[in-house]
C-alpha cells in the first residue's frame, strides 16, 4: 500500500501538468523545426521571433488595441445577454411568440455574419455601434437557445407545485424556472463570450482604426508576420481569460449549479 501512494501522487501531478508539458513541447518542436529547416519568418516565424516581435510593440499600443477590441466584445456580450434572456422568457411564456420568432432567429443565425458585416458597416458607419451590433448578432442566438432549453428543463413536478400553490407566473419564472436554467445559461455564456471576441475581430477586419483584429490585419498586409502572430497569441490569451472568467463567475455566484466535486 505504502508503495503505491507516491506513485498515485506522481500520476496526479503528471496528469495535472500534462497539458502544460504538451504545450511546451509543441513550442519547442516549432522552435527547433523553424531553426533546423531555416523557415523564413514571413512564412512561419519561430516562437522566439514572435516573442521578440511582441516586445517590439509598445505596451501602451497593445493596451490601446486590447481596449478597443475588449470594449466592443464586452458591450456586445452584455447587450446580447440583456436582449436574449427576456426573449427566451417571452418565448417560453407564449407559444405564439415562440412560433413567430424562432424561424427568424434561425435565419439570423444561419446567415454568415462575416458576409453581413460589410453591409452593416456601410449602413451604420464604421464606429463602435456597428461593431457592437455585429458582435450581438453572433452571440445572442446561443444565449436564447441555452436559456430557452434551461427554462424548459424545469422538472414538471415543480411547475405543478407552483400551480398547486396558485403562485403568480412572475414568481414561477424567477424562483423556479430561471434558477433551473442557470447551468444552461452559463454554458451559453461560455460559447457567447468566445463568439463575442470573434464578432469584434470580424468587425475590425471590415473597418477599424484600432483593435487587435485590426492590428493583425494591418501587420499581415505589411508582411510583419511575426507581429501578426504576436497579436494572434495575445488575442487567444485574452479570449481564454474571458472564457475562464465566465467559469469563475459561475463558481462564485452559483456554486450549486456546478456538479459537486467527488468526496
Amino acid at each position: 500500500m505504502s508503495l503505491t501512494l507516491p506513485e498515485g501522487r506522481l500520476r496526479r501531478v503528471l496528469l495535472g501538468a500534462s497539458p502544460w508539458l504538451f504545450f511546451v513541447a509543441l513550442i519547442a518542436v516549432w522552435e527547433v523545426g523553424c531553426r533546423l529547416f531555416s523557415v523564413p519568418a514571413y512564412i512561419l516565424p519561430a516562437p522566439s521571433v514572435i516573442l521578440n516581435a511582441f516586445f517590439d510593440v509598445e505596451f501602451s499600443r497593445w493596451m490601446q488595441h486590447l481596449w478597443a477590441t475588449l470594449r466592443v466584445a464586452l458591450l456586445g456580450f452584455l447587450i446580447s445577454i440583456a436582449v436574449s434572456i427576456p426573449i427566451a422568457i417571452a418565448m417560453m411564456r407564449s407559444e405564439w411568440l415562440s412560433r413567430t420568432l424562432y424561424p427568424l432567429l434561425v435565419v439570423i443565425q444561419s446567415t454568415p455574419v462575416v458576409a453581413v458585416a460589410p453591409l452593416i458597416i456601410v449602413i451604420m458607419g464604421s464606429d463602435d455601434p456597428s461593431r457592437i451590433l455585429i458582435t450581438c448578432l453572433l452571440t445572442f442566438f446561443p444565449l436564447v437557445v441555452s436559456t430557452a432549453t434551461g427554462i424548459n428543463e424545469t422538472p414538471p413536478e415543480l411547475i405543478e407545485l407552483s400551480r398547486s400553490l396558485d403562485a403568480p407566473t412572475r414568481r414561477e419564472t424567477w424562483q423556479i424556472r430561471m434558477p433551473y436554467a442557470i447551468p444552461h445559461i452559463f454554458s451559453g455564456l461560455r460559447v457567447a463570450i468566445t463568439l463575442a471576441i470573434i464578432g469584434a475581430v470580424v468587425a475590425e477586419f471590415v473597418a477599424a482604426e484600432e483593435g487587435l483584429g485590426y492590428f493583425i490585419q494591418f501587420s499581415t498586409s505589411f508582411f510583419r508576420i511575426p507581429q501578426a502572430f504576436a497579436g494572434l497569441f495575445f488575442l487567444a490569451v485574452v479570449s481564454l481569460l474571458l472564457f475562464k472568467s465566465v467559469q469563475w463567475a459561475q463558481q462564485l455566484l452559483f456554486p450549486w449549479s456546478l456538479p459537486r466535486k467527488g468526496a
Binding site: E157, S164, P179
Partner: peptide, 14 residues
C-alpha cells in the same frame, strides 16, 4: 389546504 408530495423529492438544488 392541500399539500402535495411527489414521486421525486423535487427540492430546489440552490
Amino acid at each position: 389546504d392541500v399539500g402535495i408530495v411527489f414521486q421525486k423529492p423535487t427540492l430546489l438544488p440552490w
